[in-house]
Design a protein around this nucleic acid. Sequence first.
DNA 1: GTGGTCTAGACCACG
DNA 2: GTGGTCTAGACCACC
Lengths: 127, 127, 127, 127
Amino acid sequence: MLIEVDFAGEVPIYTQVRDQIVIGIAAGLLKPGETLPSVRRLAADIGINVHTVNKAYSLLRDEGFLLMDRRSGAEIAPLMTEDPSFDELLSNKLIPVVAEAICRRMDIEDFCLTVRKTYSFIKRGGK
Amino acid sequence: MLIEVDFAGEVPIYTQVRDQIVIGIAAGLLKPGETLPSVRRLAADIGINVHTVNKAYSLLRDEGFLLMDRRSGAEIAPLMTEDPSFDELLSNKLIPVVAEAICRRMDIEDFCLTVRKTYSFIKRGGK
Amino acid sequence: MLIEVDFAGEVPIYTQVRDQIVIGIAAGLLKPGETLPSVRRLAADIGINVHTVNKAYSLLRDEGFLLMDRRSGAEIAPLMTEDPSFDELLSNKLIPVVAEAICRRMDIEDFCLTVRKTYSFIKRGGK
Amino acid sequence: MLIEVDFAGEVPIYTQVRDQIVIGIAAGLLKPGETLPSVRRLAADIGINVHTVNKAYSLLRDEGFLLMDRRSGAEIAPLMTEDPSFDELLSNKLIPVVAEAICRRMDIEDFCLTVRKTYSFIKRGGK
DNA sequence: GTGGTCTAGACCACG
DNA sequence: GTGGTCTAGACCACC
């Protein structure tokens, strides 16, 4: 799976790396048990600092997406179970986005339509 | 409309102020033409620096939510027209959120349900 | 001649008033000897502060566009004579504008074309 | 490329810095991909505050002249593509300038001549 | 090391 | 009284 970062964007690079791995898992490109490249290797491939990859991996581990083992490196964690508390977290993330959509006079069902299109986009592997 | 900020959180204060004003507009608590408190006044009310409020106001102006009237400070801009390009911007914002929801095995229609609940929440004035 | 100002714009109101009167003179809508409305009157018409109109009138007087008489108010000055030093002043004003046009890859003759179109636009009375 | 500011002038310092960088790009002294000094460094060199440089850089970034690379500071953005909407923006900027030239009885072709001279001046690197 | 954020306080242009 | 500009200095996130 190819990871690309935008150095000029406002999103921190470690967040971009984290996001793309989550997207890869969601798309099924990265399957539970699959090993990720080593921190050094990925850093060299992308052309970023080792510390940055390390931060992304650690974040993913803390979030439960990755298992890290000193010997075998990082691997994708088993499928997560449903977490009812995610709903509230999601809602908090959505508040400013939905508010802006309302201000821009987007219909809420059009919003949901875009959600579904985004879902398909991810499932297709971001193509 | 009351604006409150979380000084301990990781979200920049100027972003919090910006978001809350957008939410206020979406909720209908702030109507087009209505004037906002002056930067000095709001800064004093919230207990933050004038420049921080200034940054939030300038951002909102650049985004088209506010007009900075040279005479009387800031006022809410007229209702925005629908902008077809917002759809793509929205999609980009949603990608990491939807991806995470997929990983957490949330059904896409449950996601849409949360969108609708968030919509109602905002329309109720955040109550 | 109608004068309109944009209160939300970044151009100071007194500058806008000054500019529009200069445009009116250039278009021939305001002829030498013609009297302008009194400061109070114009301020009331536009809905701005008396001081602001005063500043615009004073500026125009200093630039040689207006004659001000305590008794009869302001009137348009006689046609100006050619001023060779204006060329350098003009060049200084154009430097940043031309530089930006170059960066945006506009051909210099297209720039001149826009100058001529702007000329016609003004001569038509801004229509 | 040397940047100099006039502290006594009425043009804001951050605008002067912005303008000179745009002129530098137009003159070819600053090429796409080239890195600019860090905000701290340039501020020290010119003898102004870091925030003032920051404002100039941010403005240039918003205008598309600069990319702010998270790793190495600011660099000149790739050559801009032609933007048809620039024509209208340019026209609006030219209106008061052309109007004043008309009042000062400058021939429109002399105006264009000054435009071309200014163009050459910039292309020569402002010498 | 870089820029981003926040604070604090001053002065000025504008209205 | 309003926002705009500039300065100064601090802390933090990122790399």
